[in-house]
Design a protein around this nucleic acid. Structure first.
Lengths: 198, 198
DNA sequence: ATGACCAGGTTGCTTTTTTAACCGAGTAAC
DNA sequence: GTTACTCGGTTAAAAAAGCAACCTGGTCAT
């Protein structure tokens, strides 16, 4: 029922983490395009082909943290308890994210997280690639919601709302406020936005 | 001219160290035959066949620290400066070992080293295997000394002397004295023993 | 413009490691 | 006395990693 935690799987996961951590910390230190994949491979003590076996492109070295949340919205809809509407489930899930200051909500003031956001959104190739991830996420959510054009529209609107909320939160953090301080209005705005979706 | 420090070589060395360290620390903790090779492999996070690729037998997991000094006597004789007699070179090398409290001289009171010695000499299969290492060492030394039966005899006597000296030192340490305290008489005994060899 | 780099990726080929299964000897249960 | 462990050690096949060499596309001197 669970993952078979063999020796192989454990080491693969560790290697993946080592590569991702080395990459992100180098990127934060010197900027995305001032770090070569060779540098990352050297820092993670692996070879270049091995690096590309774990991550298809250099961009994914940064975006794997988003990729880990890939399909989350679709899963939330699919796994909702019976009697609960999709939008409600998504709403609750987003609010739970706010409550635990999940970085994907934009409501997180850890310096490293803030710097990471900045890195992603000020590096064009990263921002570009990120939208591709969002598209896939949207399709998955649409499939979970149903078949017609309405499912597609709803999926797009939900994810657009989440992006706006996250970006708003992040902006406030970027202006120097603390996550704890911003939290109440973030919740209020989320409630308002999700209610308008119905 | 030097070792090619590739990624592969570095990781191999680390793996070897990890296995050896895990093995010795488990042995010291629970005794040689209360630890299975499976335990060691698990502690070192490698598989059993991999363990045996690095160490031919369970005993060698302990004795690799001696094995690392394998052929040292022969090398000392071969690399001696011209004009220096073999026995003199070996004598100086042993004294240098005493001065830096090298564990192979028996003159070392670190708890871990003492426990390690105790482990080796109170476990029959280990003591047995150790004599095999010493035999190989003796043959190598004999070859370095020359061809005839006299070379063999001298080699055997030198190594016998070193073993007696080391055992004597270890005994004094085992009686509770410090290495620093024992050092002067260890040097004196070594000088006397090596002088009698000439 | 040409040639020499450096970047992100890729391609074979070899070495290393995992996995599961096995062998042979000892040993405890029943 | 058979059954069923455990332990040290081995085998064969498959996955993973390393390495060197390559491709493509840019950038910079000369």
């Amino acid at each position: 029922m669970s993952e078979p935690t063999g020796l192989r799987a454990r080491k693969k996961e560790r290697t993946r983490d080592a590569i991702g951590d080395a990459a992100v910390s180098l990127f934060l230190e010197r900027g995305f395009d001032r770090v070569s994949v060779n540098d990352i491979a050297a820092a993670a003590e692996i070879s270049k082909p091995t690096l590309f076996r774990y991550f298809p492109t250099k961009e994914d070295l940064v975006l794997h943290r988003f990729a880990d949340h890939q399909g989350e919205a679709a899963r939330v809809v699919r796994d909702r308890k019976s009697g609960i509407k999709p939008v409600t489930a998504l709403h609750r899930h987003f609010r739970a994210g706010l409550d635990r200051y999940d970085p994907v909500t934009g409501l997180n003031d850890h310096p490293e997280v803030v710097a990471f956001h900045r890195l992603v959104f000020t590096t064009p190739s990263l921002a570009g690639r990120l939208t591709r991830y969002q598209l896939e996420d949207e399709e998955a959510l649409a499939d979970a919601l149903g078949d017609g054009i309405q499912a597609r529209l709803l999926a797009a609107q939900v994810l657009a709302v989440q992006r706006v909320l996250a970006r708003t939160n992040w902006q406030k953090i970027a202006d120097g406020r603390t996550a704890h301080d911003v939290h109440p209005e973030a919740v209020a705005e989320a409630d308002q936005a999700f209610n308008q979706l119905r």
